[in-house]
Design a protein around this nucleic acid. Sequence first.
DNA 1: ACAAAAGTGTTATGTCTACACCCATGG
DNA 2: CCATGGGTGTAGACATAACACTTTTGT
Lengths: 247, 247
Amino acid sequence: MTDITNQDIIPNISVDCVIFGFHENELKVFLLNYTGTNLWALPGGFIEKNKTIEEAGADILKERIGLENIFLKQFDVFSNPERSKHAPEILELIKKIGRYDVSVFQSRFISIGLYALLDHTKVTTTLDRYSDKSKWVAIDKVKNTILDHKEIINTALKTLRLQISYTPIGYNLLPQKFTMPEMQSLYETILGKKLDRRNFQRKMNAYNILNKLDEKREGVAHKAPFLYEFNQENYKEALKNGFNNSW
Amino acid sequence: MTDITNQDIIPNISVDCVIFGFHENELKVFLLNYTGTNLWALPGGFIEKNKTIEEAGADILKERIGLENIFLKQFDVFSNPERSKHAPEILELIKKIGRYDVSVFQSRFISIGLYALLDHTKVTTTLDRYSDKSKWVAIDKVKNTILDHKEIINTALKTLRLQISYTPIGYNLLPQKFTMPEMQSLYETILGKKLDRRNFQRKMNAYNILNKLDEKREGVAHKAPFLYEFNQENYKEALKNGFNNSW
DNA sequence: ACAAAAGTGTTATGTCTACACCCATGG
DNA sequence: CCATGGGTGTAGACATAACACTTTTGT
């Protein structure tokens, strides 16, 4: 018998999480390996009957990387009828393990893409019967992914880069107290380009989502930079309303 | 017997279209009345097995208002487990008509929201066994909607207002040839505020998505305004990449 | 000829970019 | 004491907002 059947989940809909991890100026994506194959997949899952999509996504994050209260953003829906043809070795694996009814994997799927941003060193990964390995892969080195997961990742990145111009970014990515240069390197990593140090400060400060603290980062070479923290209220406000009200 | 069963569609997922209509400086939404009730609904439907969400949305637009090639944008997914409790009078109606299996309407639904923008005078509406009336309602006068359709409409409007600051707007809304004042009143209607005539022209021209024609609108009172048309290539380009690359 | 609407121009203000300069710190 | 990175200031380019003036047309 199988543990989970069509009775417990909403059939034909899955959630896939593009978990971006940032650390030491590298933007990476979290992928799971299907045991016994060389195929990699985004952590995903089904939506239990009494949960919203956001809750389903939060559950996956909690299960897989042990983190709660991470900002998750729905960015697209993937509904191409051709998208859900799993490779035979995956179906074999499902059958062998027998947690899910194989029919669940064989029918057509619509997947809702969510993305999260976090510091990947904060994370403890948890594996399961399907995956005996996981890895963080640099965003431009993703390969051997199942189904359309590569496309999902690309779309997530594109969305992230667009969003960064009118939405605050960084809450789960930076330590509670951080410096302006750290913030900047986050932006540079996401955007994939260098920014002017001085103009960055001004612009970021103008957004009014940071509190400048009376402390400096200690023990670093050269001049000690000031520490900042997020201004919770203004950050949330900005998440709702965005920055660039062009009209 | 019923015409359409769970076999033909993807269960538990529906598509709801927020069709914004613009005409004579009014922004309206297209709603259908459920026959014999005072309840109104967004035109929506299920996703047939071999179609994408966008195709499902396009089918609904074609069926209901007879238009093809309308720009449809997916803007959110509505997945609250409590959202799908239909009013008893609706279930009665479904049973009476018997096109769909009632169980389809009783199970939990996730709905994908799409929005479209068009000139509502271009439209011939088509009714069916469920709806014997339809109407265009001013955006701030929507009431007696089923389920969470009011929330869906509000979210669509919010998205539209956000998008308008970094995306071109107007392709399906204005006649093929239109004047700058017409374009402006479209913007003013969507945004719900007045804009400066002269600054609007400059800014709009700077976007470089319009071709100024050598003709003027004739037969109007006062000075005849120049006609413009969309520059297809640049418009599409702008749809992809947006305007405000703030970083 | 005049009111109303459209087109063009100007000026003040604000924002962005690209720097120059100064400050603090570890080696 | 100097190389390196951080903080502040500023001039020029560019964009935006507010408003004056001219042009066109139906009545």
